[in-house]
Design a binder for these strands. Structure first.
Lengths: 330, 330
DNA sequence: CGTTGGCACTCGGTATCCTCGACTGCCAAG
DNA sequence: CTTGGCAGTCGAGGATACCGAGTGCCAACG
């Protein structure tokens, strides 16, 4: 643990570096409020902080920049609960007040909102359909050998999947299957639903196929990634930009990344902490979206390790909170 | 019009520049096959080509690079019909043979396919629901004051939208509206559908709301943009990368860009030709997706003006063709 | 007359060198 | 323990020189 003065100095270094992206020297810190001490003393303290791994020098005779460990200490001990300014609060409020329509739209726009507020890439992970209550199940013939199964869930999501059917399946059989599906799925969640035999083998066959298809689809994640262009500004090394963008395009990587962080109960993963090597120059700030005490999704932002943590954390928190409330009403 | 020798020289410059991204000098061209002439002669010809606007010199005593006009001449007169190698043909074939499931998935993966084949950003514009035949219309209550209207179209698309309803709307009214909707929409396309009065004012009110909502949604475009990370490699100026990425994120810009090019009957828009200023360093190669003689969508790739046009055009063509066939079967 | 080899010239890129200044670490005095 | 002072370090940035790729022009040639 660090004493008060080291703490204040580290804090000042982090703040300054976040603001300027330049290595920060002892005299700047000595001038900072809250550090009433000469630059020589600051130098001594900074040497200690460097030895303990909170700071590094890019090269001798340069200022210091925080390490991942330094940022970690900062977010754990220094940044407080985090406040968002009033304009942000209002903007978020307005957004969710004005939001209407489909869940997908809402999540998509939420990601844009986060990007706009934090100037970082944003990730929104929506609720899986699996757990939601099925309000309607339907089977619609598309052609002689294809049909669509459509489920409407209580949260407003609609999932569908195309299944192949036998050429000689009669419309009557299809209708019977549709009725059987509707009767047995409506009111349950997909996870809990079971499909008893109907007595007709052909109908059962159809129903099983439909059920399997829609169950497979409903385990897909609803993930929305926005603000990719911000990473082009955050890093000056083209290679890093490319790697980060490429990784962001692999949505399953992003999904497991975010989910993993949330599951570990963390709200911030700094640099290598999240274990995704191509993103080791990035930090991720996440918050779970909670409805009725249940964790139904996540929101987060991804930016360079020298991101504005207090602001990002506060923004992510307020957005996840409001999104949760919104989903609770809907 | 250019004589044969100028044509050959321009062609060689374009090929060389596409391959190396370096200004190309007269001696390289003189050595190229098909140009049996000394570097001095090439220099004279290049000077003419520069005066006529096909080439420019970044600075005196550097080689030349093609202008947009040079690329335009190249694609119009030089690149021939374009062949894809066998591996590509097979890969595309395999892709569409293996593809199954929902239209959205198919389009999304098609964009990934194009990115993989051309190493450029890819755009896939799917069919609008508007024109497709409605196979099923449904109205499902979500809560006391919200319902979802769901349409299933003959091409396998499912569109839905949430509408607000009066708290005191009875389930019976909702059911009546559902029946009325289904009766009047099934079998038509959204564009051609009309909604006669049912005799019950409340039901009509609901139906109108549902119809309006779903009609609004169905005019949305299904657009899939992939391969954003490739643009980080294509340009070395960070600012250009940022602008291009940002523009690609504005999906409506991309949509109107692609649509405009296709509508003008063009297959390639080079640099400023497409009129989107932030993308003036980019070319776009597009092809319409045609099903039964009808233009239902578009595919395209977007890359730096020094992209490999013959390969891109051939790839886009074959993908659009196979996608059209695939949509025709489905 | 078009083509070609030759030649002088241009100019960006790279390397070298230097200076400047922003740091640091250390030390001795307070 | 803190602080002012001081010598030392090292990268950034500017000046200089050089190199080489490439050009334009011209005179000679078939």
């Amino acid at each position: 643990m660090l004493d008060d003065r080291k703490t204040a100095i580290l804090s000042a270094v982090v703040h300054e570096y976040i603001a300027t992206a330049q290595p920060v020297g002892s005299s700047h810190i000595a001038a900072a409020p809250g550090v009433g001490v000469s630059s020589a003393t600051v130098r001594n303290e900074m040497a200690v902080l460097e030895q303990e791994g909170y700071l590094i020098q890019p090269h001798t005779s340069a200022g210091r920049i925080p390490t991942d460990k330094g940022y970690r200490f900062f977010v754990d001990h220094l940044s407080g609960p985090g406040r968002v300014d009033e304009a942000t609060t209002r903007q978020v409020g307005d957004f969710f007040a004005a939001a209407h329509g489909r869940l997908e739209e809402l999540l998509h726009h939420t990601s844009d909102l986060l990007t706009g507020l934090t100037k970082n890439a944003a990730v929104v992970l929506g609720p899986k359909a699996e757990a939601a209550v099925i309000r309607s199940a339907q089977l619609v013939r598309l052609s002689s050998n294809a049909a669509t199964v459509v489920l409407v869930f209580g949260n407003g999501t609609v999932e569908n999947e195309v299944i192949e059917i036998d050429e000689d399946t009669s419309d009557a059989t299809l209708a019977a299957a549709a009725v059987h599906l509707a009767a047995n799925l409506t009111g349950c969640s997909l996870a809990s639903a079971a499909l008893p035999d109907s007595g007709d083998a052909t109908v059962d066959e159809l129903c099983r196929a439909a059920f399997a298809a829609v169950r497979a689809v409903s385990t897909d994640d609803h993930v929305y990634v926005g603000g990719a262009s911000t990473v082009a500004e955050a890093f000056d090394a083209v290679e890093v930009v490319r790697q980060v963008l490429y990784t962001l395009e692999q949505q399953f990587v992003v999904v497991s990344l975010v989910r993993d962080i949330v599951d570990r109960g963390m709200s911030v993963a700094i640099g290598v902490e999240h274990g995704v090597e191509p993103l080791s120059a990035c930090s991720v700030v996440v918050a779970p979206v909670v409805v009725d005490g249940e964790h139904v999704g996540s929101v987060g932002v991804l930016g360079p390790t020298r991101m504005n943590y207090p602001q990002a954390m506060a923004t992510v928190d307020i957005v996840s909170d409001r999104l949760g409330r919104r989903l609770g009403e809907g």
